[in-house]
Computed example of a mutant assay.
Amino acid sequence: MPDDPQTLSPDQRQTILDWLDSSDAGIVPTPGYQASIRIYKGPTGDFAIKEPSGWGLLRTLSLASIRREADVYRRLKGIPGIPRCYGCLDDRYLVLEYIPGDTLDALDVGLTNRETFYARLLETLRMMHDAGVAHGDLKRKRNILVGPAEQPFVIDFGIAVVADDRRGLLFDLARQVDRNAWIKHKYRGRTKDISAEDSAIYKPMRSERLMRMLRPAWQAATLRRWRKKRRTARQT
């Protein structure tokens, strides 16, 4: 193993590249938001590997997003609740620590200790923001993993906002979006139930109020509720 726990050894790099080039690697690609994800489990370790998706311009943009995401992960190195990043292989595969578990979307209802889980998640967000990174898309529960011992992990920094030394309006907005998403997940959307302590970090935004007003019409136009019920019926 290499001295730096977040650096792959030459043998690890070659083993993973050989696996990616093999037929086995093509069996379980999981569609991601901006990339495809492959899970490697083998003698060299367990890793989640992101690769560009799409064709032509879309693939070029996806590759640029992956390279930028690698830079974001380097900035967040060592923060609890952020998967380890091992950099890019062949300048196109982003290799991340594999986190056993599932998304918050799947496991939120079954959490044994919500207070502890969300306290840990908030601490991760605070350290992340102190490092100058705002996720910007935590309203999607699939961007939060529930790992071993119900440790939260934040993933998918493809559209993260990175602050310069002066921070700035865009970073401040994205940081508040992260905080509001945390509140809404913790309280399951019942913002009227927010505790006095948590209300200090919650700040309703105009865009969110507008979306709440438009959501019923949008759901009706896209048949979203009907499609959700249909998916649920198929799963059962």
Results as ranks from 00 to 15, higher is better:
M1L: 15
P10H: 07
Q12R: 11
R13W: 07
R13M: 11
I16H: 04
W19Q: 03
D21G: 14
D21H: 14
S23V: 09
A25F: 00
G32N: 09
Y33A: 12
I37K: 01
R38K: 08
Y40I: 14
A48H: 01
W55H: 12
A64Y: 13
A64L: 12
I66G: 08
R67M: 07
K77P: 01
C85G: 13
Y86N: 03
G87R: 04
V95M: 12
Y98T: 03
A106G: 05
V109C: 13
L111W: 02
T116S: 15
Y118K: 10
Y118N: 14
A119H: 08
T124H: 05
M128D: 00
H129S: 03
D130T: 05
H135C: 11
D137Q: 01
L138C: 00
K139V: 09
R140F: 00
N143W: 00
A149K: 07
Q151V: 13
D156A: 09
G158S: 15
V161K: 14
V161F: 13
V162K: 10
L170W: 04
F171T: 01
Q176V: 11
D193S: 11
I194R: 01
M205E: 08
R206L: 10
S207C: 14
E208D: 14
L214N: 03
T222C: 08
K228C: 03
K228R: 09
R230T: 06
R231F: 04
Q235I: 04
Q235S: 05
